[in-house]
Design a protein around this nucleic acid. Sequence first.
RNA 1: GGCCCCGUCGUCCAGUGGUCUAGGACGCCGGCCUUUCAAGCCGGAAACGCCAGUUCGAACCUGGUCGGGGCUGCCA
Length: 475
Amino acid sequence: MTVRVRIAPSDTGSIHVGNVRSALFNWLFARNRGGTFIVRIDDTDVERSDTANLEDIVSGLRWLGLDWDEGIDVGGPHGTYKQSDRFERYRQVALDLVASGDAYFDDREPDELEQLRNRAQQEAKHPGTYIRRLDPPATDGVIRFAVPSGDAVTFSDSVRGEMRFEADSQDDFVILRSNGVPTYHLASTVDDVDYGITHVIRGEDLLSSTPKHILLARAMGADPAIYAHLPLLFGPDGKKLSKRHGDTSLAAYREGGYLPEAVFNFLAILGWSLGDDREIFTAEEAIAAFSLERVSKNPAVFDTDKLLWMNGEYIRALAGETFVDRARPWVREAVGRDLDETEWATFGQIAPLVQDRAKLLTEVGPQVTFLFTDDPLIDQASWDKVMRKEGVAEILVDAASRLESVNPFETESIETALRALAEERGIGAGKAFQPVRVAITGSSVSPPLFESLAALGRERAVQRIRNAVERLSSG
RNA sequence: GGCCCCGUCGUCCAGUGGUCUAGGACGCCGGCCUUUCAAGCCGGAAACGCCAGUUCGAACCUGGUCGGGGCUGCCA
């Protein structure tokens, strides 16, 4: 069987990590099986739907390295892959279902239904029994699917095993709203049938809606897809991940300095594993090893500590040139302008040292801005801690004069000169070097000192140390 | 309330009746290295929710219980 899977993100907001994780698993499954991966847009919520979010969805998925064979932005045999363009089709299906007796119009008021539900709850009966309607149908209102009573719906979930839902526990659910717009259940099922979707891989929150979708597909005369329900992603509080958990949009991670490979890898180990101890792996390795059987059943907490660590691993694993390329936009942003060729060369010189230290691309800029401004920002806490000690001014004056005669002005000779300073003055290395560090970078945290001095150049280095001395004497 | 899902270190994952005094990773703690910060290296604390049953033997099977979660909408 040729596998055809899809994801159907809604365009009511920025795409978030839960959806992205579902997308990733669908993609992995499709690529593993040589199947087709489809991206369709679920925009049936006309109130909140916003096409401005389309770009976010498309670019987010691409950024992660996912590609799709049919769907939004790439097209295919099924039109635009936006559900809003197929409302006529869904309406027709709803009407056909009414004609065949599988659905009916319902004009009862929401208030009345609310009362029925409450009564059902109090009496601990199946709510479906109350929502159903046995009297002759009206001719307007919503269209509800008529759940056949008595039968149980059973199916085999590829991750959870055998499932069984009593039909009497299911409401006669709305498939077409009174404004003629289909509900999620209808649109999604019609599309899955029309597009020939073979496997529906989605979050567990849809598990209890699956009987509805199976019933719907059957009423349309189609074979339901194979279902696989992924464990949910939780926030730190153990609840389904949502906006209130902070950064849950993919964009937040992209803008936060994460590498797509790291996010990809991290999302892949949430609810799935290769089966051995490997936790860091490539997309190719994941594709080769992927199977729904290996997907775990229990929910996973989205733990950004581990993502952060993993991002650092990926940054350090980058080839030097690649790191420089990836870091460029972040350096520009931090410096506030583009760099010229000489400056980029300077950055390239010190980049490996920064690469070793960064867990986030956002950390790169602040580490190197001192090289590209005449007046680096001074971190007051660093200054207070390092510069307000006895003898600092003397050390700085001495350092400046030694640096003036260092030749060539390179890492090794600089190190020799400054170590001599410490030794001759009988002070520890840290005591001698920290003031110089703060003087030239503005902070007690920086790339290694001698390399930083070399990159800065003699003239600017000496000038900055003298400026620091002046600042010290003026209080 | 009803229906459904889930239950191994704080977190992610391994484990499918003996090889488990339960393994790896993040995080945490301690140490080494060291010019700061990282990285790296070494070491440590840390879990099978509970109770029955099946079995010679159970983290793995069964039942119950407790706990967590999802759904219960003219949201998806």
